[in-house]
C-alpha cells in the first residue's frame, strides 16, 4: 500500500507547495511512490484519510488553529513545510504591532465593525509556527523550501531514515561553492548562524543570507551579533537582520 499524503496550506504564499510542482518530471516519480489524496492547490479531491500531512503556512487565527488540530489528529506524521510553518514566516514581523494597529494600517478604508474580532476571518491574526500549536514530527525549512531536499525527505520517510536536514551553517555550502564571502567585500550576512541545506543560494548571487531556514541547533548568536556590530551595523540594523525570518527567536512571548 502506498502511503497517503495530504498537503495543506495556511497563511503563506504557497511558494513551497509550488516547489513540489517544480520537481517537474520527478513529480511523476513522486506520484508513483505515494498517493496524494489532498493537495488543494493542484487537485479537486480531498480526503480525511491520510498517513502523512504536509502543512505549509503559519497559524494566525482561532479558526486556523482549529483546522490544524483536526489535521494533526488524523495524521500519523505531520511535516512542517517551509519557513511559515517552521518559524511563522515573514508575516511574523506583523506580531511587532497589535492586531488593531495592523488592521488600521492595511484596512484603513474599512468600516470598523466589518473587520472587528466579531468577524472570524479577521479575528486577531497573530502568526505562529505549527509547533507552537501542535506537535510537529519533521520540518522542511526554507523560504521557499529546496525542492531537492523535499524529495530527499520523502525518500527518507519512505525508507525509514531520519530526514537529512543539515545542521551546519550556510557558510559550509557557501565555501564549498567557492563564493566570495560577503563580509570580505563590505557586506554582512546571517550565514554563520543560519541553517544550511539551501546550497547557499542567496550569497551565491551576491545577496546576504537572511536565515530563512532558521538557525542551526546551537547557534553562536552572541559571536554573530558581535561580528555584525564590528562590521558597523547599528543596533536597529542588527535587529532587522535578526527578525527577517527569525523573529520567532526574539519574540518575547510565544517564541521558543
Amino acid at each position: 500500500m502506498k502511503p497517503k499524503v495530504a498537503i495543506f496550506d495556511f497563511a503563506s504564499c504557497e511558494g513551497c507547495e509550488l516547489q513540489i510542482v517544480n520537481l517537474e518530471e520527478a513529480i511523476i516519480d513522486v506520484a508513483k511512490l505515494v498517493d496524494i489524496v489532498e493537495f488543494r492547490e493542484a487537485m479537486k479531491e480531498s480526503s480525511d484519510d491520510y498517513d502523512i500531512a504536509i502543512v505549509e503556512g503559519s497559524i494566525a487565527r482561532p479558526i486556523d488553529e482549529e483546522r490544524l488540530k483536526k489535521i494533526r489528529a488524523k495524521a500519523k506524521i505531520l511535516i512542517a513545510l517551509g519557513a511559515c510553518a517552521h518559524l511563522g514566516g515573514v508575516q511574523r514581523l506583523g506580531n511587532r504591532f497589535s492586531p488593531d494597529e495592523n488592521k488600521k494600517e492595511v484596512y484603513h478604508m474599512a468600516r470598523p465593525e466589518d473587520i472587528s474580532d466579531g468577524n472570524p476571518y479577521f479575528k486577531e491574526p497573530r502568526h505562529r509556527a505549527l509547533d507552537e500549536v501542535v506537535k510537529v514530527d519533521y520540518t522542511i525549512p526554507g523560504c521557499p523550501i529546496n525542492r531537492v531536499e523535499f524529495a530527499k525527505v520523502l525518500v527518507a520517510l519512505l525508507t525509514g531514515k531520519k530526514p537529512p536536514i543539515p545542521d551546519y551553517p550556510v557558510c559550509v555550502e557557501c565555501k564549498k561553492k567557492e563564493n566570495t564571502c560577503l563580509y570580505t567585500v563590505g557586506g554582512v550576512c546571517m550565514g554563520p548562524v543560519a541553517r544550511g541545506g539551501c546550497d547557499a543560494i542567496c550569497p551565491t548571487y551576491g545577496g546576504e543570507c537572511e536565515a530563512c531556514r532558521g538557525y542551526v541547533s546551537h547557534p553562536h548568536e552572541k559571536a554573530q551579533m558581535d561580528v555584525l556590530a564590528k562590521y558597523g551595523l547599528t543596533a536597529e540594523e542588527i535587529m532587522n537582520r535578526k527578525t527577517m525570518f527569525t523573529s520567532r527567536y526574539t519574540e518575547k512571548k510565544g517564541g521558543e
Partner: peptide
C-alpha cells in the same frame, strides 16, 4: 488569513522591501 504586509514592512530598510514583498 490576512498577512498584513503593508503594515509590517514599515520600519524595514529599502533593500529588504523586495525580499519581503516577494513573499
Amino acid at each position: 488569513a490576512p498577512r498584513l504586509f503593508e503594515s509590517f514592512v514599515v520600519g524595514r530598510p529599502y533593500h529588504q522591501l523586495a525580499q519581503i514583498t516577494s513573499r
